[in-house]
Amino acid sequence: MEILMILTVGVLVSVSTYLLLTKSLLRVVLGLLLLSHAAHLLFLTLAGLKEGAPPLLGEEAASYADPLPQALILTAIVIGFGVTAFLLVLSYRTYKEHKTDDLDQLRGSADE
């Protein structure tokens, strides 16, 4: 199971790296989105995957999955959602103002 998860993380990271290096605004945003998924999956895997362990239900449980990483990932997903929503709006406004989504044309430090 760990091997499969790590392979998934690897594929996600490579795809997101490719997208982050492209010139289109929207693809960069998608790249960040995939990178955040990779980070969350990696967190889940690193914290230890257990087979057949239910969530923590009572104090007497014989075996249970560690609830902390799940809580942390949930928090991180919510934050990531907020940031992505903001980033999408920002990239749309940037596109509308500049009439282009090519990052090559958004370079340089000259004002206007």
């Binding site: 982050l20 605004l25 960069v28 945003v29 960040l32 990178l35 955040s36 990779a38 980070a39 969350h40 990696l42 967190f43 690193l46 914290a47 902390l68 990483p69 942390l72 991180a76 934050i79 940031v83 903001f86 980033l87 920002l90 990239s91 406004r93 940037t94 103002e97 500049h98 958004l106 004002d111 206007e112």
Partner: peptide, 29 residues
Amino acid sequence: KYQLRESFKYVVISTFGSMFFIIAVALLY
């Protein structure tokens, strides 16, 4: 115009850093 495009870069770089923050926390945990 200038503000929007520079903010976009700033947001992308900061978010990229935050992802590494999560990965570092995961390793540490």
